[in-house]
Amino acid sequence: MSKHHISTTINGEPVEFLCDTAQTLLDVLRDELGLTGSKEGCGSGDCGACSVLVEGRLVCACLVLAAEVDRCAVETIEGVAQGNALHPLQQVFLNEAALQCGICTPGIIVAAKALLEKNPDPDEEEIRFWLAGNLCRCTGYDKIVRAVQQAALVMRSA
């Protein structure tokens, strides 16, 4: 059975790959394209550690078939920083100890970035419900929510 030939853009760069039907976007990102920033915590869409954007929409890469992203724009954690310049979310997360083990951090930063692009000044409740799909077991979420609010402030005043 021949593989699917997919041409897509990932973090703004054109990328082509071959994949089987059963391979998810997460499998291809990690195993074929070496983009291991998206993490597999559950493989069933329940933890959010594999959050990416497909056509600007925040989704779990483990619940998207790689074949579905043909001619779609994909954005992953690897595309959040611009070269060496960290995104305000990344810098504030580091400064405010908003991560510990960090396995959930890529998914949370991709999700939070999507939120701030939709609403530049979200309140605590909106942040918490937006991030409810991103499980974190280390922090208890407090510093993550505060970091998103602080990054939003930085971005609004930038």
Partner: peptide
């Protein structure tokens, strides 16, 4: 900052898998 942790926020940190 958190030394040695920049990779954790950029997706470059290498975990077991």
């Amino acid at each position: 900052g958190s030394p040695g942790w920049r990779d954790k926020v950029t997706g470059q940190a290498n975990y077991g898998a």
